[in-house]
Amino acid sequence: MEVPILKQGRYLIATIQAALSDEDLLQFRRALLDRVIQFRSRGVVVDVTALDVMDSFATRTLRDITYMIRLRGADTVIVGIQPEVAFAMVQLGLTLEGVATALDLEEGLAHLEQRARSSS
């Protein structure tokens, strides 16, 4: 299950479209980092609306992706965490500390624009 990554100007938009195995998640991490380097992207939106479970591995991988991209000087926003998924994550004790989140793709892109303006 490959995650499509679209280039939109200075940004990348990755939309997870189905449940991912651990291998899929690691493959996604590699592919996304490659694209960030290739396109010298300034920001990334990862849309997880279709993820029905965010367990410890998925949460850790998304956090790692964000930290790695930050070391490249780019921002990442996770968007579309479903309410029941958010509830389960908190019950499980999982956090996305230091990771930006937004309601949906539109707000995620707005967040990146805002970050770009405030740092320029």
Binding site: V53, F57, E84, A88
Partner: peptide
């Protein structure tokens, strides 16, 4: 409910992991 279904699926994921 949808919330409980997700809690159950998440618990299974952690146990299987």
């Amino acid at each position: 409910s949808a919330t409980d279904v997700t809690l159950i699926a998440t618990a299974i994921s952690e146990l299987a992991r």
